[in-house]
């Protein structure tokens, strides 16, 4: 039972890293559906770097770096060129899927390094994830930078006349989002599942993306959702443990997505909106052109 919970929390921390990055990204108005691709890149290149150098630190740095680069790429397409953000994101996913399969294939197999240490049985990254949640919440709701990010995501034209560079804030956010996803991928490949295999991420990027919508763009709810999704994922690996004979693991894996859709239906309902106002950043997914 305890290992089950620990594994769930460790899955949650990876969802949290990637989800937090995407949350900041979307708060600034940029939708990046290519999360899975960036995570795959972070995981694969981080894995290869750590395996060839024998150094974990280099592996994580490579994950952060490739994440930042892909974030920048998505930013270039969606901010500077004004391309449809879904198309750009999808491109990054397909690119990541193909490229990492090609690059990673020769490295198929286990990492072969000593396992990273734990604190109270849980990975130190879990504590880092909790700190990041509080940090992102604090920056978004209590600081001037956060106000700028949120304004750019709601009404970029208003931010612009208030003297804020929409381009700069959006680039910052999209690069931050990329770094967090790349890092999440590296943590996955170097700690959670240190065995490279074809498509070994199994859609975790999409779960993290769904998580952002589930969270209604609130970092605390995002963390709660990450833990919930982590538990559901572990359950999906071994449903017999709790519900003998009840549906296959593939059915269980859909549960996070079904829950996300239910949340989306809820927050789009008239009832919810008349009570709580719109929670979705108003300018999400819309390119901004200076007047």
């Amino acid at each position: 039972m305890l290992p089950f919970l620990i594994r769930s929390l460790e899955a949650a921390m990876i969802f949290t890293f990637a989800g937090l990055g995407e949350l900041v990204d979307q708060r600034s108005g940029i939708l990046n559906v290519g999360l899975e691709g960036i995570m795959l890149f972070g995981a694969t290149l981080g894995f290869i770097a750590a395996k060839t150098t024998g150094n974990y630190f280099i592996g994580f740095m490579v994950g952060l770096g490739i994440g930042a680069a892909l974030g920048l790429l998505h930013g270039f397409f969606s901010i500077s060129l004004g391309v449809d953000q879904v198309v750009s994101g999808m491109g990054i996913w397909i690119f990541g899927f193909g490229m990492t399969t090609y690059i990673g294939n020769p490295y198929t197999g286990p990492l072969g390094l000593d396992k990273l240490p734990t604190i109270l049985g849980v990975s130190p990254f879990f504590y880092l994830a909790v700190i990041m949640v509080v940090l992102v919440w604090f920056v978004l709701s209590k600081t001037g930078l956060g106000l700028q990010i949120r304004s750019v995501g709601e009404r970029p034209s208003v931010a612009q006349v208030s003297g804020i560079s929409v381009t700069r804030i959006r680039y910052m956010s999209v690069i931050f989002g990329g770094m967090m996803s790349g890092f999440a991928g590296a943590v996955y490949a170097l700690y959670y599942n240190p065995v490279w295999n074809y498509n070994f991420l199994m859609g975790w990027g999409f779960i993290s993306l769904a998580l952002v919508f589930f969270s209604m763009w609130n970092p605390y709810i995002l963390f709660g959702g990450a833990v919930l999704f982590g538990l559901l994922w572990q359950l999906a690996l071994n449903p017999q443990m709790f519900f003998p004979g009840l549906a296959s693991r593939y059915i269980w894996r859909m549960v996070p997505f079904i829950m996300t859709i239910l949340v989306l239906v809820l927050i789009s309902s008239k009832w919810f909106r008349s009570r709580w106002g719109a929670t979705k950043p108003e300018a999400l997914g819309q390119p901004y052109h200076k007047e």
């Binding site: 001037g144 106000l147 949120r150 304004s151 009404r155 034209s157």
Partner: peptide, 21 residues
């Protein structure tokens, strides 16, 4: 030129030098 989802105060602060940090 106001952000509808934000409070009046947040709108006033937006772009103001006092909104640093």
């Amino acid at each position: 030129k106001l952000v509808p989802a934000h409070t009046v105060l947040e709108n006033i602060l937006l772009g103001h030098p006092k909104s640093r940090g």
